[in-house]
């Protein structure tokens, strides 16, 4: 299997005046295509910092990062934006949808910057919303949707451009356990379809959905192991419950 992410000895130092915070102190990580990784660790251990670097939103202070074989350090701003657009999809803890903008228009956002024509954009956005089970909420504004629904719109936005990797930083952090499980079932489904998923989480039962667990402590990776407790049956049940929930959603 080919490596989609290859980070070697990456450090990140934030300097605030005369104070320096070493958020990452030499992190190396390789992710193969099609993996589902859970990144865990205490608050402040550098998980988000690492995610932002992997998402090309931020650059490392030192070290090298190859995304799909491309050395990120040699790209300019325009090329980085292009990579984010075509290869990466983001899901954030706080959803980060544009306010006063319908679900469909939110999902269309990456397509606008991919210079895709209006009609095709609409079709693709509706298809993505269908994949997350929100076809009937396409014209709703974010503040007319529940937290779980908002996060599913965000997931639809992340997958609409058929990215190689979806990066999710605590995607269930603001959701109750029932909706969390729905969202995770969705991720499992997308992963099965071949999208690599890298997800940060605090909760062990959310991490249980992943195929590999990476543990951060004080800016370093302290453990990296395959997830033996991952239950295939568990996933199937949850996928079914999402489908069931969709029908109840449509009723209300």
């Amino acid at each position: 299997m080919n490596e989609v992410v290859n980070i070697s000895d990456v450090t990140k130092v934030y300097s605030m005046g005369d104070m320096c915070v070493e958020a990452l102190r030499g992190v190396s990580l390789t992710v193969a295509s099609g993996e589902f990784i859970a990144i865990m660790g205490a608050s402040g251990s550098g998980k988000s910092t690492c995610m932002n670097i992997m998402g090309c939103l931020d650059v490392p202070t030192k070290g090298e990062y190859l995304l799909d074989g491309v050395n990120i350090g040699q790209l300019n701003k325009r090329e980085l934006a292009d990579l984010r657009n075509r290869k990466l999809g983001f899901v954030f803890q706080v959803f980060n949808l544009l306010p006063r903008t319908s679900a469909r228009n939110n999902v269309e956002l990456p397509l606008i910057y991919a210079r895709i024509q209006t009609n095709e954009r609409k079709t693709l956005a509706l298809k993505a919303l269908e994949r997350v089970g929100l076809s009937d909420r396409a014209d709703h504004l974010p503040n007319q949707l529940s937290g779980g629904q908002q996060q599913r719109v965000a997931i639809a936005r992340a997958l609409v451009n058929s990215p190689t990797i979806i990066l999710a930083d605590e995607p269930t952090g603001n959701l109750d356990s029932k909706t969390s499980n729905e969202v995770m079932a969705l991720f499992t489904e997308l992963n099965k379809q071949g999208i690599t998923i890298i997800m940060v989480t605090h909760e062990p039962d959310i991490a249980a959905y992943a195929s590999r667990r990476v543990l951060f402590r004080d800016g370093l990776i302290v453990s990296d192991e395959a997830n033996s407790s991952r239950a295939a049956a568990n996933t199937c049940v949850n996928t079914a419950s999402v489908v069931a929930d969709q029908s109840t959603l449509r009723d209300c």
């Binding site: 998402g55 701003k77 984010r84 980060n96 544009l98 956002l109 910057y113």
Partner: peptide, 16 residues
Amino acid sequence: TREIGIRMAVGAQEKD
């Protein structure tokens, strides 16, 4: 600012 950040995260370029 956050809207700008979201747009950039999904691939908006400086000129956009």
